[in-house]
C-alpha cells in the first residue's frame, strides 16, 4: 500500500480508481483498458502539476515520506563489495549511522550515512536516524580510516537531528557532534555529502562539512525542524508551515544562498515513486563531483574546504 501525503489526495483517488479497474474480472474489455490509460495520463498530469509547485512545507513532508529511499538503499544500489563496519571503539555501535568500505564506480570509497529505517521495526532499530554520540564517533572513525588509506568519503544525510536523550547527553552529544565537524574539516581526502531526505541541524552538519554538498530536489536542510522553530518563535507548533517558509530550508533556497553546490532533480512525483531512478541520478552526480576532486592533494582539499565555509553568509537572498 502506497502512502499518500495530504496534498496528494487527488492523485490517490485516481490511482485507487485505476487499481479498482484493474481488478475487474473481465480483463479483456477494451473500454476498461482505455479507461486505465486515460486515468494514468491524468495521474501523470496531476503529479507533474503538484510537484512543479510544492510549498516548502510540502517538501518537508516529501523529504520525510516513509517510502523515500533511505541511506541503506543508496548503499545497496550504488556501492559494490560493500563491507559494513561497526562501532566507535569506545562505547558501542550506533545503528542510526551505517557505513563501511566499498566500491563506487569501481573505486574503493568509505561511505556512511544516517539510516531512518523503512518499517516500524527498522525505524526503532535505527532510532529514526537520530544518532547518539557513538554514532558520531563511528563516523569520525570511518572518516579517519578513509584519510589513512586515501579513500574518498561519501556521506548520506538523512536525520531529524542528533538524538536528544539523557544517555546521549551523558556521553557528550555536543562534543561528539563538534568533533565530527572538526574531523570533516581535517581529513585530506575528498568528502562529498548528499542530502537525501532530512538535513536536521547539527546532527546533519556533523557529517556534511564537506567539499561538495549535493541535495535532492525535495530534500530539506535546516537549523531546526519547522515544528521546533514554530514552537520557539511562534510559541506554538501549529505554525510549522510558516516556519518552513521563513527558514528557507529547501534545496532551491540553499543553492541560492550558496550553502549547497548542486540540486539533483528527482523523478516525477518524488524519489519515493521511483527510488532506483532517484538513486541513479544522485549516483551519477556524485561520480562527476568525485572525479573533479580526485586530482586535488590533501592540503588543497583542506584549504578549499575551509575557504568555502568561511565565504558562506557573505551573501543574503
Amino acid at each position: 500500500m502506497a502512502t499518500y501525503l495530504d496534498f496528494e489526495k487527488p492523485i490517490a483517488e485516481l490511482e485507487s480508481k485505476i487499481s479498482e479497474l484493474r481488478h475487474v474480472p473481465n480483463s479483456g474489455d477494451v473500454d476498461i483498458a482505455e479507461e486505465v490509460l486515460r486515468l494514468q495520463a491524468k495521474v501523470d498530469k496531476q503529479l507533474r502539476a503538484t510537484y512543479a509547485k510544492l510549498t516548502p512545507w510540502q517538501r518537508v513532508q516529501v523529504a520525510r515520506h516513509p517510502d523515500r529511499p533511505h541511506a541503506q538503499a543508496y548503499i545497496d544500489r550504488l556501492i559494490e563489495d560493500y563491507t559494513p563496519l561497526a562501532g566507535d571503539r569506545a562505547f558501542g555501535d550506533d545503528l542510526a549511522v551505517v557505513g563501511g568500505l566499498g566500491r563506487f564506480q569501481g573505486r574503493p570509497v568509505v561511505v556512511l550515512g544516517q539510516e531512518k529505517g523503512s518499517d516500524t521495526e527498522a525505524r526503532v532499530k535505527h532510532n529514526f536516524g537520530m544518532a547518539r554520540p557513538e554514532g558520531y564517533r563511528k563516523a569520525q572513525r570511518l572518516m579517519r580510516l578513509a584519510d589513512r588509506f586515501r579513500l574518498p568519503v561519501l556521506t548520506l544525510v538523512d536525520t531529524p537531528g542528533a538524538y536528544p536523550g539523557i544517555d546521549a547527553e551523558a556521553r557528550g552529544q555536543a562534543e561528539a557532534v563538534a568533533r565530527s565537524i572538526e574531523t570533516c574539516l581535517e581529513i585530506g581526502v575528498p568528502l562529498v555529502s548528499l542530502v537525501i531526505g532530512e538535513g536536521g541541524s547539527g546532527g546533519a552538519l556533523a557529517i556534511a562539512s564537506a567539499d561538495r554538498i549535493l541535495m535532492l530536489e525535495n530534500a530539506v536542510y535546516s537549523v531546526i525542524t519547522p515544528e521546533g522553530c514554530a514552537s520557539i518563535l511562534w510559541r506554538s507548533n501549529t505554525h510549522a508551515q510558516e516556519a518552513a517558509e521563513a527558514m528557507r530550508m529547501t534545496a532551491q533556497d540553499l543553492k541560492r544562498l550558496d550553502v549547497i553546490d548542486e540540486v539533483i532533480a528527482e523523478p516525477m512525483g518524488g524519489a519515493h515513486r521511483s527510488p532506483d531512478e532517484a538513486i541513479d541520478a544522485a549516483g551519477s552526480a556524485v561520480g562527476r563531483v568525485l572525479a573533479e576532486l580526485a586530482a586535488l592533494d590533501a592540503d588543497t582539499l583542506r584549504r578549499r574546504r575551509r575557504e568555502k565555509f568561511l565565504a558562506m553568509g557573505k551573501k543574503g537572498l
Binding site: 552538519l205 531546526i224 568561511l310 553568509g313
Partner: peptide, 19 residues
Amino acid sequence: MQEGILSLMQLTRTTIAVG
C-alpha cells in the same frame, strides 16, 4: 534561528576558527 541555515553554518565556521 532567524538566520536559518546560515546560523547552522557557523558551527563549521567557528570550528575552522579555533582550528
